Simulated assay, not measured.
Amino acid sequence: MASSSARGRNPSTGCCRNDAMTGYRTVERESRIELVERKSRFIGWCFPIASEEEALAHLSRIRKQHHDASHNCWAYRLTPNGSVARYSDDGEPGGTAGMPILNAITGRELTDVLVIVTRYFGGILLGAGGLTRTYGKSAGMALEEAGLIQMLPGVALTIVVSYAMYGKIGALLAHPGLRVQDTRFEADVSIEGTLRLEEYPGFERDLADATDGTAQLMRGKELLFPF
């Protein structure tokens, strides 16, 4: 059983952290999954995070929500190169919970993510191997349910064209490196979106060619955007 929430990172906005414009992999949204292993109930949670404070706030909330659980084990990884990593077995045998959760994160080369796995003991011991496999599986399911995305260098832009020229730029607006977030039909047509940074020069040239130089292209901030 799995569910996801759009309360995580908004795909239409860029990452506010601009300290490493090389890109990284992370998750798109919050998620929740469940599985049962030999009568023990495991609930996996995944959260996009931008700081340790945010991770601890999510952890505190889940602990309060599931205060009657046998264990709330967790791991998180932060910064574009994943240099900040923490995990906890929360009373499970050492190395059988927190580390498998962290391995699920690092194995997918993800960062800026927190995974919590809540366990309700079902009365049957799983053994070290069983615990390691189940915590790792729960974490992996939660991560996949959250949606894996690549944060890449991009630039916000606004395009303003006449109605006559709008029909001529359909192919450009379908460019795989462009994400259109808003289109407004007023005196002219205004299009707002984000474009892969490396593709901006070519896009600028193609837009000018397609509209006989009449389109206005306004360049905004350079940030890391989900693509």
Results as ranks from 00 to 15, higher is better:
Y87P: 05
V84H: 00
L148F: 11
A139T: 10
R119I: 10
Y135V: 12
A146Y: 13
I105R: 01
R63I: 05
I49G: 11
H71L: 13
L110N: 12
D112R: 14
A142S: 14
L78Q: 01
A104I: 14
E54C: 13
R63G: 00
L114S: 02
H71D: 12
S70I: 13
A142H: 05
A146H: 12
A50Q: 03
G130A: 08
T79C: 12
A146W: 00
I62E: 12
G82Q: 11
F121A: 06
M151D: 01
I116M: 11
L125G: 07
V117D: 02
V115P: 07
L143V: 12
A50M: 12
A55G: 15
I149H: 00
W74H: 14
L152F: 08
F121W: 04
I124G: 12
A128D: 02
G136N: 10
L56P: 04
G140W: 00
N103R: 10
D112S: 04
E144T: 14
L148R: 15
A75N: 11
Q65T: 14
E92K: 12
T132E: 01
K137V: 12
L102T: 00
T106M: 13
I124P: 03
A85V: 03
L59P: 07
T134P: 11
D90N: 15
L78F: 09
G95Y: 11
S60M: 12
E145H: 13
I105A: 11
V113A: 05
P100M: 01
P48N: 13
T106H: 00
E52M: 02
A139M: 09
A75M: 11
L114P: 08
H66S: 07
K137R: 06
Y135W: 03
G107C: 04
A139Q: 14
